[in-house]
C-alpha cells in the first residue's frame, strides 16, 4: 500500500514529514508535502492521522487486492472517524472512540 497527498489541500505544516517512521515524506520547493519513496511506505498511517487538514489518504496496491478505494481519517470532537471513498462514489464511515478499548 501507499499514500497519496492532495496538494490542493496541503498547507505545508510538515507534520507528516516529522512523523513518518521511514523518512519517506519531503516538503517540496512549493512548500507542499510529497512522498519521495512511495514503494517504501509501510502503511502505518501515522502521517494520515497527523495531517491537520486531512490531505493524506492511503490505498491498497493492486498486488495485495486493492480495489481503488482511498482512505483517510478525520477527528470529530473526541472521535476518530475513518472515511473510505470507494471508486464508485460510495462513502463508508466508521467512528472510533479512542477511549474505548478493543474488545478482542
Amino acid at each position: 500500500m501507499s499514500i497519496a497527498i492532495d496538494k490542493s489541500k496541503c498547507v505545508g505544516c510538515g507534520r507528516c514529514h516529522e512523523v513518518c517512521p521511514g523518512t519517506l515524506i519531503k516538503i517540496g520547493g512549493d512548500k507542499k508535502a510529497y512522498i519521495k519513496y512511495p514503494k517504501d511506505c509501510w502503511g502505518c498511517t501515522s502521517c494520515i492521522k497527523e495531517c491537520p487538514v486531512y490531505a493524506i489518504s492511503f490505498y491498497l496496491g493492486a498486488d495485495i487486492g486493492g480495489m481503488g478505494s482511498m482512505v483517510h481519517t478525520e477527528k470529530k470532537d473526541s472521535l476518530l472517524c475513518w472515511i473510505i471513498d470507494h471508486p464508485d462514489g460510495v462513502k463508508t464511515e466508521i467512528d472510533i472512540d479512542p477511549k474505548e478499548s478493543n474488545k478482542y
Binding site: 487486492g65 463508508t92 466508521i94 478493543n102 478482542y104
Partner: peptide
C-alpha cells in the same frame, strides 16, 4: 457485534485489513 468490534480493532492496529474487508 463481534464483527463490528473486530473491524474497529483492526482499524486501531492494522487498518489495511479493515479496508480489505470493506472493499471486498
Amino acid at each position: 457485534e463481534t464483527e463490528e468490534s473486530l473491524l474497529k480493532a483492526y482499524l486501531n492496529m492494522a487498518p489495511s485489513q479493515a479496508i480489505k474487508w470493506i472493499e471486498s
